[in-house]
Design a protein around this nucleic acid. Structure first.
Lengths: 214, 214
DNA sequence: GTTTGGTTGTTACAAAAATAACAATGTTAA
DNA sequence: TTAACATTGTTATTTTTGTAACAACCAAAC
């Protein structure tokens, strides 16, 4: 009877992912204990924030020795990862889709990209970084067959709403949309959207601001 | 004597970028006026939020007719864009770098990617989507020569801190870091970091949560 | 021993962001 | 002409996020 604890804050979840990644690097260098301010330095945040996050997940370090790297990695894993692992597909195997696949594969054992989809006949049934690319017509079939729960959308913007709709029908539980066009999903499907152009324009705005009078 | 108005909230800036993008689509369809709830629907946000953002930039619509699409686009442009335009470079011309270049080019007239950098001799002096790729050794030289103010980092993670340092020395004013390794820059350089693996792990976490007891 | 110092865990406070509430306004319809 | 309505602009409230303050603890130094 696993209790479903209250959801962690958004930002804490993001930082937990980063803690783990950096802790794995530390571990590979033979570091066994780490202080909150060391973690903080790596990620350009404050030690308080680190301690607060760890408090939220109920992890307790030892005084003057800091946190046990291995233990903490394991705990974050128990929080972030699903026990059995989750399968991910990428819809749209263009430059961005391919970079995600190659970047990802073999990195997280509990989260793996197992299929790509594209309509371009040149790409269909090719293999990219170990991932088979299927024709988009087979979306529903493959998602159900392989029990895929998460989808990343990297198609041209105008196609994303249609893709999202098909994904929802196929039973996808979470969507990461990298197109600039926002999509609509029912509330039980978790949606995260990110647009690179917006980020760049944001940088541009603040650079302009920093420059003062222009 | 242009007054430097108080900086807009982070999130408002992001949404302004999206408003403009969507308004341009509306305009191209011949739509001349738009209501706050229409804008909101397109972006899956609330009408109040739209009105609030527009209030912050001092734009006033007309009652019962909504906002003038053209006027609003122009105003957002005056806020987000620098008058003369800004030049951007991409450091690391892998899959991700190339997808950014091809995705970007010709989209925003005031913000253009004018150079790529890579250490791979295969790529040096090739042209990708109209953008010349230089050897990374020439970072400093080219940035100064072309008056580039913004850099996007898409190199392998372990190289990003070194790259950031060189960019700062070259006089870059804003950095968008897409590697999972956080970089350190002086406060006058605006820094935005985004990591795709973290986003995916976040989706995974909330999918798991939504599933309840597992 | 006792004091000093560094580090944790937690509570209290502040800032940023989102949401709600509502007055103001002018258009349309009776 | 007046009432109803749709829509804006703004203020107030709530929620989320980050920061600061500080007590508790224990190891090491004296």
């Amino acid at each position: 009877m696993a209790i479903t604890l209250k959801s962690l804050p958004d930002k804490t979840v993001e930082r937990l992912s980063q803690y783990r990644r950096n802790l794995l690097v530390c571990l590979s260098k033979g570091k066994q204990h780490i202080f909150s301010h060391e973690i903080a330095n790596i990620q350009n945040i404050t030690p308080v924030q680190v301690r607060r996050d760890l408090m939220l997940i109920g992890y307790t370090g030892t005084l003057r020795k800091g946190y046990d790297v291995k233990e903490l990695i394991d705990l974050i894993g128990r929080i972030l990862d699903s026990r059995t692992g989750m399968k991910v597909c990428v819809v749209g195997v263009g430059n961005l889709g391919r970079s995600l696949i190659s970047y990802f594969n073999g990195r997280r054992s509990k989260l793996s990209i197992v299929a790509g989809f594209d309509t371009n006949p040149e790409k269909v049934d090719k293999v990219y970084a170990g991932v088979h690319c299927y024709h988009s017509d087979r979306l529903n079939e493959i998602i159900k067959r392989d029990e895929i729960t998460i989808a990343i959308i990297t198609v041209p913007a105008e196609q994303s709403p249609g893709v999202a709709e098909k994904l929802v029908i196929a039973g996808i539980k979470g969507i990461l949309n990298y197109t600039p066009k926002s999509v609509n999903v029912p509330p039980q499907v978790y949606l995260e959207e990110y647009d690179m152009v917006t980020s760049l324009e944001k940088v541009s705005y603040f650079v302009k601001k920093n420059a003062g009078i222009e």
